[in-house]
Design a binder for these strands. Sequence first.
DNA 1: GATGAATGAGGATTCATTCAT
DNA 2: AATGAATGAATCCTCATTCAT
Lengths: 218, 218, 218, 218
Amino acid sequence: MNILTEKQRTEKAEKIADTALQLFQTRSFGSITMSQIAAKSGVGKGTLFNYFETKENIFMRLLLSGYQDYFENLIQDFQKLPSQVSVEEFSNFMINQTQYLIRDKSVLVRLNALRAPVLEGRANMDQTLAGRQVLYETSQRLGQVISEHVTFISKSEASHLFIVQSAIISGLMNMMGLDEFDHEQLSPKFTDFKINLETDAIQTLKFYLTGFFASKKQ
Amino acid sequence: MNILTEKQRTEKAEKIADTALQLFQTRSFGSITMSQIAAKSGVGKGTLFNYFETKENIFMRLLLSGYQDYFENLIQDFQKLPSQVSVEEFSNFMINQTQYLIRDKSVLVRLNALRAPVLEGRANMDQTLAGRQVLYETSQRLGQVISEHVTFISKSEASHLFIVQSAIISGLMNMMGLDEFDHEQLSPKFTDFKINLETDAIQTLKFYLTGFFASKKQ
Amino acid sequence: MNILTEKQRTEKAEKIADTALQLFQTRSFGSITMSQIAAKSGVGKGTLFNYFETKENIFMRLLLSGYQDYFENLIQDFQKLPSQVSVEEFSNFMINQTQYLIRDKSVLVRLNALRAPVLEGRANMDQTLAGRQVLYETSQRLGQVISEHVTFISKSEASHLFIVQSAIISGLMNMMGLDEFDHEQLSPKFTDFKINLETDAIQTLKFYLTGFFASKKQ
Amino acid sequence: MNILTEKQRTEKAEKIADTALQLFQTRSFGSITMSQIAAKSGVGKGTLFNYFETKENIFMRLLLSGYQDYFENLIQDFQKLPSQVSVEEFSNFMINQTQYLIRDKSVLVRLNALRAPVLEGRANMDQTLAGRQVLYETSQRLGQVISEHVTFISKSEASHLFIVQSAIISGLMNMMGLDEFDHEQLSPKFTDFKINLETDAIQTLKFYLTGFFASKKQ
DNA sequence: GATGAATGAGGATTCATTCAT
DNA sequence: AATGAATGAATCCTCATTCAT
């Protein structure tokens, strides 16, 4: 066990990160401890630090690789589409993606909210920037692919669109739960404060896309 | 000093809360300590706890009273407008407000992001709900006023609009700084990741409003 | 209200002390706060300190005056008895007293257990010793009265007997509740650990008195 | 240092507990701090909490293991005695034990006085009850052994006798020091208040045993 | 004399991280 | 490489006491 292959090393790091992700589904960053991650991963506490310098690095990696995977999948999905895609078809695609992000990848969006205020303060800068660089390139490739399929949208605009998409979901997420307190439902009150995340996000994105394409057509 | 009037008590509580707010302009919730707030307020550490049960209560109060003030001002501003306001005029109003929120009240939006994951866990529930109740009523009054001035928008829709507005700003804020690391500007890179908060928020809101009114007119 | 008569002053001090005593019936010294005493007494927190230098002084006073009253009453009771009292009658008297102490004055015994380890560290020494002096004299008078009524017991022995009586009750009290945990009854277990305070105290005292008088008669 | 054997773990826990015990010889529970225990044990403050959940748990353990050892030793001592022991021999044995408890194990008795009012509020209940269970069984075994050696005393009575023994010592201890103040000897005064712990405890126990056996013989 | 606002020393406890094995 | 025991800085909070009014 003395010398691990690169693959073995990567797999163990992933196991640790995955465990952290699972914990993050139901708990906040602050309430997750390294001990819990170690116990649930089935590795020793010290081992964590052989793979990640700090707790923040674990979550920064989750954020970067999560978006990396998401963007890669988007590229794949897009390449399956016919060479030309109408504005309407593209909008539907984005709406489906939004639904998917909310239903299956909401942690990604929650991780995003941690990045600047929590993670960057103690994450390894070089590592983070290297990951971000790769992500940026992927995002550029994604933008490229989209711009090739959809008239009226440039590479830059496409790339930026996904930032806006995440922003909308993240923002609405922040505003959710005003009809609850600490996850306890309150007696029916505050109805106009209530956010239906999926409905509101899709509507907001739809309006955004409509507005965006309208502005391009002029 | 023996017995404080309600006003004096409120003023001191506000002084403490204001200090916390100032610290929050440049630091994160987690890195602000009660000792710092005490020292910077010029009061003893114990005094803090005479005014606020917990650290979280301080910030919950800032959040609630911040939005309370914001909504109250909006009502005032709106009442100065002519009895009928066109959709375009209303949109401009909202855009100005967005700019104002970003430029002068961005902490409010950042506080919002703390609410569910951080504050509610340890804030006094009754106090919070009382504050939220008042805020809700104000938001309803605001919605009422708007619906009276603007055709095509109901009280509920107007009230909900401000939630969306905050969501957009908050979400974009979360996505900002991808061209920085821990507030250090990086050499020009990641340009398509860059969020220009004001521009992007206004554009997104504009699109939202356009889409919203278009959907109403049908 | 500027100048209080000695009587008024004493009455207020007693009101405060009484409140503390009431709280002590159901709570421990450590969990009683000066704020609670003030609130329940209906006086200001600062007023407490006009009457008692420290929290410990309040309880020391309760201890001293409690025993003072108890001894005074004993003297009165004794003086009502016929001039000669048999050993058996005296024993019955002591047993009744034990029962009374347990049923109605158990706080007194609990206070006793606080004296050395808790109170003396921060109680006013002069005041305490003055009180103890008075108590001592009363105890001597009590001893005197008893020795006059009961053959076979000297003043010193009688005086000492009450110390032993309190010791027995206090000690058994300390050993109570081994069939409970933090006042929660446990499922029937530990039966031989169980102390029945009244029964055990009376039996122990009875044995003590029997032994004592037997040793004197030899 | 990587993984400690059960024995090593126990030893370190004992080292910490021993340190607490030493401090408790001369200071009160309330005035002993975790920092002091850590410093005097030569371990870090955090280490304390790896071994004991709370400060109260340390002292609860001292209490339980102290009595456990005491009872075990008593069983051993008793098994060395001839198969039949006269009432007088047994009484002498108990008196010697009382002397030993007072001279060498008085902290044990002082710890007992902390149990209900102080320790149980914050000690781990399951741990405590497990320890108490073991102690109870030991006490039963001790009772058994005694009842086998001494006619006139049942297992239950023997077991209960040790509770009474501790109660007598503990109670007298509470009443001690009335000729002192905060451990400072006062000029010769209050002589009849003076408890000579050893003499008084032995005498009280002797009377108790005499009374007890007399009641059995009838 | 009465009051309660202000105080701050002091305490228990948490947890990311280190490092000897 | 893996481990988990050890660590101690850091944090929130309590509450007896002081003192200006």
